[in-house]
Amino acid sequence: MAITLAPGARRPLFDDVHDDYRESFRRFLKAEVVPHHEQWQHDHITSRELYTKAAEHGFLAMAVPEEYGGSGVDDWRFNAVLSEEAAYAGVQSSWMGPNVHNDLGLPYLRAAANEEQKERWYPGVASGESILALAMTEPGTGSDLSAISTKAKRDGDHYIVNGGKTFISNGINADLVVTAVRTGDDPHRGLSMIVIERGMDGFERGNQIHKRGQHANDTAELFFNDCKVPVENLLGEEGTGFAQLMAHLIPERLGLAVSSIACAEAALDLTLDYVKERKAFGKPIGSFQNSRFVLADLHTKVTITRAFMDQTIQKYVDGTCTVPEAAMAKFWTTDLLSEVTDACVQLFGGYGYTTEYKISEMWADARVNRIYAGTNEIMKELVGRSLGL
């Protein structure tokens, strides 16, 4: 339970069904994720079995319609519950892969896949046997999606794809990679989305990228060398790629914001327990005025941010959340998470910098949140433009 809620309190955002789902997922994490988290951190990748087990219990690809093997649940609040509970359980990087599957890859299929594609891909996506990834970022593009250079040239009934992507979550595990490619010269209207599948000729994966944090989240470079992709794998119409990317950035950024504020709450909970027990000069370090002031400040910021986030999630569920609001949520929560975890490490003292204590992992994991899903500088630019500046 986050420190921002009194025991037994309910957030108005959620109903009984969400609360039951939350409790069920807590049990799943305790049984199927927490015991393996340390090993997956060491391996820099989670087991593929995590996806099939999550599917069996109703925690994967929930929005896939029932006729294709899914639950047919189109309520993003369930996605928020999964992100929050993974953070509270301290296994955020282990659950990052299923989050990518649910929140980044699947929305593209739901919005643009035709009937033949749904019949071909949905059953495996719903069962966890076909893992999804989203490939946008390139070595030279970063947040500038209009500069994507991976090319897909039409050649009869195939596209020939050449180029590469980097920092792709699920890059090793993925079976279906929703890939942004250039099919024309126009910076925006020349982009298309295409699904590249495991085993296709010319599709190669680089080694896992070993990051400073979020180790269990497998991340890799992807290479396309005259990769032959059937025309039937084009997602939507040619030239609609940029519009598709823009349409799905709101839930991507909100998902990261949901995870970030939950991680901040978890870090504060952990630190409060520590400063009440750890003693210096004969009394708990939490009793010193500096400790109280630091924690009071962070608790206030987290509490206010939680209220804003729940409001923003509700607006997204209602279909009224705007791009600037999602950008505000993303940059504010990720900045706050870094502030919280850094202050918490300081309160732990030297122990906070050791791998023996969970706070060091949380601190390292937090840093990248300010970079991906669009850097926080880009988020502030979006907000600034919305002000007419």
Rank of each mutant, 00 (worst) to 15 (best):
E377S: 13
G282Q: 04
Q41I: 03
L337W: 05
H158K: 07
F308N: 15
L249H: 06
H37K: 09
G8N: 04
L106A: 00
E252T: 13
S260Y: 11
G184A: 12
F203E: 06
V91I: 02
Y122W: 08
Y51F: 13
Y108K: 00
G105C: 04
V383M: 07
L191S: 08
C263A: 14
P139C: 11
P251E: 05
R198H: 11
V161N: 08
I371H: 12
F281K: 07
E377V: 09
G384S: 14
D269N: 13
I359T: 08
N173K: 14
R278E: 15
E197N: 12
S149H: 15
E356M: 02
G202N: 03
V323H: 15
A366K: 05
A135E: 00
N99D: 15
R370I: 13
S24C: 12
W121P: 06
T219Q: 12
R212Q: 10
A111M: 11
T341K: 00
V81K: 00
E197T: 15
Q244T: 05
F223T: 03
D19S: 11
G70D: 03
S71P: 08
M96K: 12
Q346P: 01
Y357R: 03
A296E: 10
Y21H: 04
V100N: 02
S169L: 07
L29E: 03
A133G: 06
I209T: 06
H215E: 14
L191C: 07
L13C: 02
W95P: 11
G236D: 08
N162E: 00
A55P: 02
L270K: 15
R10K: 03
A9P: 01
K283I: 11
N225T: 15
L387A: 02
D185T: 10
F59W: 05
A133Q: 06
G206E: 00
D74W: 10
L272M: 11
E339C: 06
M328H: 13
Q39A: 10
F167V: 07
E56T: 04
D157Y: 01
S146P: 11
L29N: 04
A307W: 01
V323R: 13
M200R: 14
H101G: 01
P284L: 08
G349P: 04
N290A: 11
E49S: 06
R292E: 07
P65Q: 02
V125S: 01
E232Y: 04
A366L: 02
H101I: 00
S93L: 03
G384T: 15
E85A: 09
D155N: 09
N217I: 10
G255A: 02
L109P: 05
D155E: 12
G105R: 06
L134C: 02
G199Y: 01
I313G: 06
I285L: 01
S149L: 08
V178M: 02
F288W: 07
K30W: 05
A262P: 05
K165L: 09
F224T: 00
G142T: 04
D269L: 14
V100S: 01
S260G: 08
E23M: 09
